[in-house]
Simulated scan of single mutants.
Amino acid sequence: MKGTLVSSSATDILELLSSREIEVLGHLAEGHTYSSIARRMQLSPHTVDTYLRRIRGKAGVNNRAHLMILALQVTRRDEVRLTGA
Rank of each mutant, 00 (worst) to 15 (best):
G84W: 05
T47G: 07
L25Y: 04
A38Q: 07
T75V: 03
S18H: 07
R64F: 10
V74F: 00
K2I: 04
L17Y: 08
Q73G: 10
G60V: 07
A38L: 05
L16F: 09
M1E: 09
A71G: 04
P45Y: 03
E23R: 04
G60W: 10
P45L: 02
L14E: 08
M68V: 08
R53E: 13
L5A: 09
L17W: 00
L72M: 14
A29P: 08
N63L: 01
L16I: 06
H46F: 14
L52S: 05
R20E: 14
E30N: 04
R76F: 03
L43Q: 02
R54G: 11
Y34D: 11
G57V: 13
G57H: 14
L67E: 11
K58C: 09
V61T: 14
H27Y: 06
G84L: 05
L14F: 01
Y51C: 02
M41N: 02
Y34W: 11
G57M: 12
E15L: 13
A38P: 00
S44M: 07
E23Q: 04
Q42W: 12
R53D: 13
L52A: 03
I37H: 01
K58W: 09
A65P: 11
R40P: 06
T11V: 10
R76P: 00
A10W: 01
K58E: 10
I37K: 03
S19Y: 01
L17G: 00
S7T: 08
E30D: 09
Y51P: 02
P45I: 04
L17Q: 01
R64T: 01
H27G: 01
S19A: 05
K58R: 15
S19G: 09
R54A: 14
R77M: 00
H66R: 15
G84V: 00
L43H: 00
Q73L: 11
T33D: 03
M1R: 09
T47A: 12
L70Q: 10
R39I: 12
A85K: 13
A65C: 14
L67W: 08
S36I: 07
D49A: 15
A65R: 15
Y34N: 11
S7G: 10
A85I: 11
A59Y: 08
T75E: 08
S18N: 03
E15N: 11
H46C: 13
T50Y: 13
R40Y: 06
S19W: 06
H66L: 05
P45W: 00
R20D: 12
E79H: 12
T75Q: 02
K58N: 11
V80R: 12
L17V: 06
S7W: 05
A10C: 07
L52Q: 10
Y51I: 08
M1V: 08
T47Q: 06
L70C: 04
K2M: 04
